[in-house]
Design a protein around this nucleic acid. Structure first.
Length: 929
RNA sequence: GCCCGGAUGGUGGAAUUGGUAGACACGCUGGACUUAAAAUCCAGUGGCCAUUGCGGCCGUGCGGGUUCAAGUCCCGCUCCGGGUACCA
């Protein structure tokens, strides 16, 4: 029989399912290996050919590890809460649970056809109560813990309360929203409501008035990573800044650990770099500038304390509380007007007008604590409220923003750093600030003449001695806003008593998402849960109306897979101690600042609680590149219904039109299919080239319906089979690289599988595998392939694996090798890549057990070695001829033989041989001149 | 602006520590088989010159350098992709 992929794939997929081939359990007798894919959001569009890329890679790796004796955990599930299903629900009234369930069904069908080795008994869906019970549980723990900076871990709030009762805030070093000072007496005298309000200042999950990204179009707030360039990541709607009372997670408390942890994990440099930038650690000094004629003082953060002699003004963020405290009565109106104007500017305008400086003078002056000089205090929105202290000292000579501001408002500019090899210059002639990273100090009192690094040190010392400020580390990373004013998400296990939030008892979990009549806000502007009937506790307290954001459910799913059915714990200690952490995580870079930060934070928190045994969840992470679309175009002559082939377009005035890539093969248009594709083209005429071809143009674009370049894996599987799809996705190029999907070339991979098949079976379907002894040559081919494939899998170089298989099968075909001792190990090698075919061949060669449990073959040194080496012989680095030598020939023998070669004379003639380089086993280079 | 990647035939890509550049495929050209097509198989395929034979020169974005030897290392650019952006 010929290679009948349809039958084979159906047969083995059923076999695997019936025999629970991929089900795994804790097994302390075997080493574990955990391979994880980023679970998908099941969108209505289904999978396109780009989605499985990472899944195929991880599946190959899982199967490879299993063959090498590991107990491999390889689960899959769904990130089922999300905006698209809810938006669809608003439009159609269809419950998002139904939409989601349908989409999941579709995903599952598509995934099953590809032949993955997932243990589906461990499937999780984030929208299911048994699952989100643990999301809610984690939230309660975060509510009941605070971050103790001295212990450098999360600690129970109950202990904090005990401390307050006996010692007040004295001696507390905790991550908090605001530094509070109170005595034990004051604490004990506080009404309950005030105590609760105070505790929110410390809780890791806390409710507070914070500046949030409000997206009116989506009717919800968004986290920082969900906003890009002033618009929402999903949908691209404008986002504005607004103060709202919202739940947040105190991720910033973990900033240092999140940063340090990066050094312990095996992730790509680029991904670590993105996280490093996102965390944005900067070391500097916090300094206090007293305000003249006032008891108020301004605290500022600077990384360049050494430039303090160059300060010519101060700037406050418009949102800063200090503005009202310092503003003089005659400037009050102007400042108020400015702040009102600044508020009106959307985040987008603010960003697009970066160069345009706006601001207002407060009328107040600050006193430079080092020089005792008075400098004016301004308000401007170029200073951000959310970073540092919301106030800065401006050094216009050496900061381009301060410079632009000084020029706009005609403020003085004093140079304090002179780059090496330059002279002090007249700042009034400058077009921009000058760099101050290197150089020496001028106009700077006691640090004059010092180099920048020394000056920084000396200033810091001075500040500490005189108690003007303290050395401080600042992070850009902000707390994650955790409320969404939406329906389709996890309800908060929170109720309100006297306006203060309290968490439900754990025994009440899961708090299930209630039904609502509409998925829209209420008339009073409350979130959709405001429509739920009886949305209160048994005691009658109202329950929180917000729901959790998308990243809530995805922050610990990798832990749940370890023990998905446990109704007592998120994950049992036994399961967690066995599976520990994810050994290999494959997914896209787009989650760098979202999911991958949040889940690291979440995991560290659970680690602090002793719930999990590893501090970092993902040991190794590989980013698969994006599969871009490859669009095809036809060219219509303007004003006609006539289409001209690509290479003739120069002669006409044409409009390029996207054409469905599924009716184009190797850039040749299927004209009949095109006519039927759209009624508009029914009577189209064509100008063909090279006789009868219509050649299409092409371009690389995003894969999307509107570009008509979406390729569905189902179609590829229908035509070529899943094994071909798997192999081809890998053959396309390096895993990490982004590349366009181009169906051209898939034939080559399919042909390879058919050739492989023919090593086992003749045209009439007779097995031709023999028990003859393998030749030296055949063993060499096999063992080289074993070495290459094993090595390449370890390096995640799957594209070169496919090439290596092709070379191997080509060689074996040439050798007419049909020997069991060669073909069986080859089948095992092939099984991670083309599991269906490998199973069938394994079965046909007489095995009863599945090939997934076959032992991975070992490359034997003795079969890899050659008796002789073919040396390339170069003259002055240019290869001129080849020379075959015994592998054990000495350098001298090789030199002699090379010079004695008939072609050598031609290159040495009339020249002197100056040097001969012999690298044994590699190359010979003869230097002549 | 800053940070990180990348650039190799008509196309996707290979070359793991500096050691034969273009493996393996696609496409294309020619041929075999066939009434024909499909399938399969064989040969050729970086550019230029020579092609009667050998062959020769150039060539990994551009310009320099190190080295017996550079796609690979160093210095300076250009272009493309990604991240990030008043972060003090």
């Amino acid at each position: 029989m010929e290679y009948n992929f349809k039958e084979i794939e159906k047969k083995w997929q059923k076999h695997w399912k019936d025999n629970k081939t991929y089900k795994v359990e804790v097994d302390n007798s075997r080493p574990k290996y955990y391979v994880l894919d980023m679970f998908p959001y099941p969108s209505g569009a289904g999978l396109h050919v780009g989605h499985p890329l990472g899944y195929i890679a991880s599946d190959i790796f899982s199967r490879y590890k299993r063959s090498n004796g590991f107990n491999v955990l390889h689960p899959m599930g769904y990130d089922a809460y999300g905006l698209p299903a809810e938006q669809y629900a608003i439009q159609t009234g269809q419950h998002p649970a139904i939409t989601t369930e349908n989409n999941i069904k579709r995903y599952r069908e598509q995934l099953d056809k590809i032949g993955f080795s997932y243990d589906w008994s461990r499937e999780v869906k984030t929208c299911e109560p048994d699952y989100y019970k643990w999301t809610q549980w984690a939230f309660i723990q975060m509510f009941n813990h605070y971050y103790d900076n001295n212990a450098d871990k999360a600690m129970p709030v109950s202990e904090l309360v005990k401390h307050f009762e006996t010692k007040g805030s004295e001696g507390i070093n905790a991550a908090c929203s605001e530094n509070l000072t109170f005595s034990a007496e004051e604490w004990n005298a506080m009404p309950v409501k005030e105590q609760q309000e105070t505790l929110l200042n410390y809780r890791i999950a806390y409710l507070a008035d914070t500046m949030v990204n409000w997206c009116p179009a989506l009717g919800t707030v968004l986290a920082n990573d969900e906003v890009k360039e002033g618009v929402s990541l999903r949908g691209g709607h404008p986002v504005e800044q607004k103060v709202m009372r919202q739940w947040s997670l105190r991720v910033s408390a973990y900033a240092e650990r999140l940063l340090k942890g990066l050094d312990t994990i095996d992730w790509t440099e680029s991904l670590k770099e993105i996280q490093k930038n996102w965390i944005g650690r900067s070391e500097g000094a916090e300094m206090v500038f007293p305000v003249k004629d006032s008891d108020v003082s301004m605290k500022i953060f600077t990384t360049r304390a050494d430039t303090v002699f160059g300060v010519t003004f101060m700037v406050l963020a418009p949102e800063s509380e200090l503005v009202n405290q310092v503003v003089t009565s005659d400037q009050k109106e102007q400042v108020a007007q400015y702040i009102a104007d600044a508020k009106k500017r959307t985040e987008r305008e603010r960003m697009s007008e970066v160069k345009k400086m706006t601001g207002a003078f407060t009328g107040a002056y600050a006193i430079n604590p080092l020089t005792n000089e008075e400098v004016p205090i301004w308000v401007s929105d170029y200073v951000l409220a959310g970073y540092g202290t919301g106030a800065i000292m401006a050094v216009p000579a050496h900061d381009s923003r301060d410079f632009a501001f000084a020029r706009t408002f005609r403020l003085p500019i004093t140079q304090v750093v002179v780059p090496h090899g330059e002279e002090p210059a007249d700042t009034s002639k400058w077009d921009d600030s000058i760099d101050s990273k290197e150089g020496y100090l001028i106009n700077s009192g006691f640090i004059n003449g010092l180099d920048v690094p020394e000056a920084i040190e000396k200033t810091k010392e001075y500040i500490r001695e005189k108690s003007i400020g303290e050395v401080k580390v600042n992070y850009r990373l902000r707390d994650a806003i955790f409320s969404r004013q939406r329906y389709w998400g996890e309800p908060f296990p929170v109720y309100y008593k006297d306006d203060m939030p309290y968490t439900l008892d754990e025994s009440k979990l899961p708090l299930e998402l209630p039904e609502v009549d509409k998925y829209l806000p209420t008339e009073q502007g409350e979130p959709p849960l405001g429509r739920a009937k009886n949305w209160k506790t048994e005691e009658g307290y109202p329950i929180e109306l917000n729901t959790m954001p998308g990243f809530a459910g995805s922050s610990a799913y990798y832990l749940r897979y370890m023990d998905p059915k446990n109704d007592q714990k998120l994950v049992s200690t036994e399961a967690n101690n066995y599976w520990q952490d994810v050994d290999l995580y494959i997914g896209g870079t787009e989650h760098a600042t979202g999911h991958l930060i949040y889940s690291r934070f979440w995991n560290k928190f659970l680690y602090d609680l002793g719930e999990v045994c590893k501090d970092e969840p993902f040991r190794k992470l590989v980013n698969q590149g994006m599969i871009q679309g490859r669009s095809n175009f036809v060219y219509r002559i303007k004003g006609t219904n006539k289409f001209v082939s690509y290479n003739l377009t120069k002669e006409y005035d044409v409009t390029p039109i996207h054409v469905d890539v599924n009716i184009v093969h190797n850039d040749i248009l299927d004209i009949e299919a095109f006519k039927n594709w759209n009624p508009e083209y029914k009577n189209a005429e064509f100008i063909l080239e090279e006789g009868d071809k219509y050649v299409c143009g092409w371009a690389v674009e995003k894969m999307s319906k509107s570009m008509f370049n979406v390729v569905n894996p189902d179609d590829i599987i229908e035509q070529y089979g899943a094994d071909t799809l798997r192999l081809y996705e890998m053959f396309l190029g390096p895993l990490e690289q982004s590349k366009p999907w181009d169906t051209n070339g898939i034939d080559g991979v399919h042909k390879f599988l058919r050739r492989t098949w023919r090593l086992f079976s003749d045209r009439d379907g007779q097995m031709v595998v023999t028990d003859e002894e393998a030749t030296k040559e055949e063993l060499k081919v096999l063992h080289r392939t074993i070495a290459k494939i094993s090595d390449d899998i370890e390096r995640f170089s799957f594209n070169t694996c496919v090439s290596a298989f092709m070379i191997c099968v080509n060689d074996l075909s040439d050798l007419k090798c049909h020997k069991r001792s060669i073909l069986e190990p080859l089948t095992v090698l092939l099984s991670p890549f083309a599991p269906h075919m490998a199973e069938e061949l394994w079965y046909l060669t007489g095995h009863n057990s599945s090939v997934v449990d076959a032992q991975w073959p070992k490359a034997e040194e003795k079969h890899l070695k050659d008796d002789s080496v073919v040396y390339p012989v170069s003259f002055n680095g240019k290869m001129r001829f080849k020379l075959e030598m015994p592998a054990d020939a000495s350098k001298e023998e090789i030199e002699k033989a090379a010079l004695a070669h008939e072609t050598a004379a031609k290159w040495t003639e009339g020249k002197t041989v100056r040097k001969i380089i012999v690298v044994p086993g590699k190359i010979i280079n003869i230097v002549v001149g």
